[in-house]
Simulated assay, not measured.
Amino acid sequence: MAVATPELTDIVLHQATRTLEVRFADGSVFRLPAEFLRVHSPSAEVQGHGPGPGVLVGGKQEVAITRLEPVGHYALQITFSDGHDSGLFGFDYLYRLGREQDTLWQRYLDRLAEAGQSRQP
């Protein structure tokens, strides 16, 4: 049986560092860079339309979050400075991104290197 995601208790957007800070009732605090969120967007554009690793999105090192819009009591719609705004970041997905941030980031960097792509715009 899957473990329930703790309740999201706070969201803070740090514009200067382009970081979204999310806090959960279990005491977890995750600082998720805009670039990390952008390249791991839950949108079909990034995740793809079937099984597999999804679409590799490079060149987003300078991306920022320009808008946060709550969706009910379960998700955020994030608008990025490159215009991307599709996909809902469910609170459970944000929690997973936070818990797995180091692994997911390294996997992303490895995929970029293998593809000969860069984080640079």
Rank of each mutant, 00 (worst) to 15 (best):
M1G: 12
M1L: 12
V3T: 11
V3I: 11
V3F: 15
A4Y: 10
T5F: 03
T5S: 11
P6M: 02
L8T: 02
T9D: 07
D10Y: 04
D10M: 09
D10A: 08
I11C: 09
I11R: 14
V12D: 12
V12G: 14
L13A: 12
H14C: 15
Q15H: 15
Q15R: 15
A16P: 11
A16I: 11
A16G: 10
T17E: 14
T17I: 11
T17K: 15
T17R: 13
R18V: 09
R18M: 14
T19C: 13
T19P: 09
T19H: 11
E21W: 10
V22Q: 02
V22M: 06
R23M: 09
R23Y: 09
R23D: 06
F24W: 01
F24P: 00
F24R: 01
A25I: 04
D26V: 06
G27N: 01
G27S: 10
S28G: 13
V29R: 14
V29E: 14
V29S: 12
R31M: 12
L32W: 03
P33K: 04
E35Q: 08
E35I: 04
E35D: 09
F36G: 01
F36Q: 00
L37W: 04
R38D: 01
V39R: 00
V39N: 02
S41M: 02
S43W: 00
E45M: 12
E45Q: 11
V46L: 06
V46D: 03
V46C: 02
V46S: 07
H49D: 15
H49F: 15
G50L: 12
P51G: 13
P51S: 15
G54W: 04
G54M: 07
G54N: 05
L56G: 06
L56S: 08
V57C: 10
V57D: 01
G59I: 05
K60R: 15
Q61T: 13
V63F: 03
V63N: 00
A64E: 12
A64T: 15
I65T: 05
R67W: 09
L68A: 10
L68P: 05
E69F: 08
E69W: 12
E69A: 13
V71E: 06
G72Q: 03
H73M: 14
A75G: 03
L76C: 02
Q77Y: 04
Q77H: 09
I78C: 00
T79I: 10
S81A: 04
D82R: 06
D82T: 00
D82P: 03
D82E: 01
G83N: 02
D85P: 03
G87K: 01
F89M: 08
F89Y: 12
F89D: 01
G90V: 07
F91Y: 10
F91K: 07
F91I: 08
Y93D: 03
R96L: 13
R96T: 14
L97Q: 00
G98I: 02
G98A: 08
G98W: 05
G98V: 00
E100D: 14
Q101A: 11
Q101R: 08
D102L: 07
L104A: 07
W105V: 02
W105Q: 12
W105A: 11
W105C: 07
Q106T: 07
L109R: 08
D110H: 10
R111G: 11
R111D: 02
R111P: 03
R111H: 06
A113I: 07
A113Y: 07
E114N: 07
E114G: 15
E114Q: 14
E114M: 08
A115N: 08
G116L: 09
G116H: 07
Q117E: 11
S118T: 08
S118Y: 00
R119E: 14
P121T: 05
P121Q: 05
